[in-house]
Design a protein around this nucleic acid. Structure first.
Lengths: 229, 229
DNA sequence: TCAAAAGTGTTCTTATTACACCCATGG
DNA sequence: CCATGGGTGTAATAAGAACACTTTTGA
């Protein structure tokens, strides 16, 4: 093998755009940087990938250290490798996004997690490094993906109302949807289980609660069914 | 900044799945490996990314060294980083695919290019390293992308017949399409210019030649038009 | 009794599918 | 004159879009 030593002087990181849905609002989790450059800026959670660690594992680790959550939906989006993107040397970063149920998320006592905060996406301004570009790429991917895969449910609690689901789609797609058409379409797929329960303590007619039937989806999917909203 | 030296011992490469269309057949360009491991195996063209080189530039370089072609359609697909995927150390690879007009492609006199050959995709068997997985990811991406962006034309000569175009889609999507419906749909988009020329020297009624109007597409796209086939 | 959100059908329009015959050319 | 692929239209079906009122609850 030729001498390749000159190439083994780089590093790579993962950055993770963590989406959550709360209060009718799509949010991302940012952390306050504790070091230069961009000290005290809010940025995407991320870290170097260890030599014996796979990329997906690194992205999961970053998420778990911050939130304590495991087994969440995670998808690789794009790799960013501009020559001068990192001051410490040649560092390329593999961008992921993940979808968490904000209700599961407990602000960890760990020092890293104490510096974390949820931000509504429209309120996120310029981020350090190329993080704005990364966020945009991940948000765009989510927008496309959410229409063809039933991943929206990853952002909702196990029991949800159809209106919550609709608002979730409206936040992600940044558009208004027609209530009757939305319900017709989503119920026609037969992937929601009507729990015969209703909301409690709301100052209006209480909504029915539904649950997503993941097993049924997997079964239909393997037979060629395509989720489409 | 904390001491990060331990992380700066990795390398990264680009691998490029180069698609071409010829003879009614979708093909990819493979090169015969000149070194261990996998000596004499056919594998994807790829190389290390230089320290001062951006990722897209590296993918373009690999393509140009092999084919002499510049300014071709190139899209990043996914990054593969299994810990043990490369024997020389920790090497992650950023996978790209590109679309070339086979008619433009001249087998370069360079030693690297002389070892290259076009393979019909179904005839590609196991590839070295994780190249089979990379090929699959890129082919899947192409299948999706070709339905929502007018990139199929990148694989055809500037003047083409509707039947050629249909066969191209059929090869990529691995399905048969209805001739009348296909023509109706593609012509309704008004993105093809009828050149008022016909094929010559064919032993049947000669077909009309068309050209893709890229400027018109860009214009419509910026106004919200979505290509969809 | 009021405010607030839940729930529910029909019509119209548009897109998709299925399908078969005549035409122009070279050999 | 035959073989080969080029070129064309219509009807049936399915999907999507638009749209307004009644119901249930807590305050």
């Amino acid at each position: 093998m030729a001498n390749l030593d000159g190439f083994f002087k780089s590093a790579f990181t993962v950055d993770n755009v963590i989406f959550g849905f709360d209060d009718g609002d799509l949010k991302i989790l940012l952390i306050k940087r504790g070091e230069e450059p961009f000290l005290d800026y809010w940025g995407l959670p991320g870290y170097f990938v260890y030599p014996d660690e796979n990329l997906d594992a690194a992205a999961n680790r970053v998420l778990e250290e911050l939130s304590g959550l495991k087994d969440v939906y995670l998808e690789q989006v794009k790799t960013f490798g501009a020559v001068d993107r990192h001051p410490a040397g040649r560092v390329i970063t593999v961008a992921y996004y993940s979808l968490v149920k904000i209700s599961d998320y407990k602000l960890n006592a760990s020092s890293i997690a104490q510096k974390a905060k949820w931000f509504s996406i429209p309120k996120v301004s310029e981020l350090p490094f190329d993080h704005s570009e990364i966020l945009e790429a991940c948000f765009n991917r989510l927008k496309r993906r959410v229409r063809t895969r039933p991943i929206g449910f990853e952002l909702l609690p196990p029991k949800f109302t159809l209106t919550e689901l609709q608002h979730l789609y409206e936040s992600i797609l940044e558009t208004k949807l027609d209530k009757r058409n939305f319900r017709k379409k989503i119920l026609a797929m037969n992937l929601l289980v009507d729990l015969n329960e209703t909301q409690e303590g709301v100052a209006h007619r209480p909504a029915r609660l539904y649950q997503f039937d993941g097993e049924k989806y997997e079964d239909l999917f393997s037979k060629g069914f395509n989720f489409e909203l």
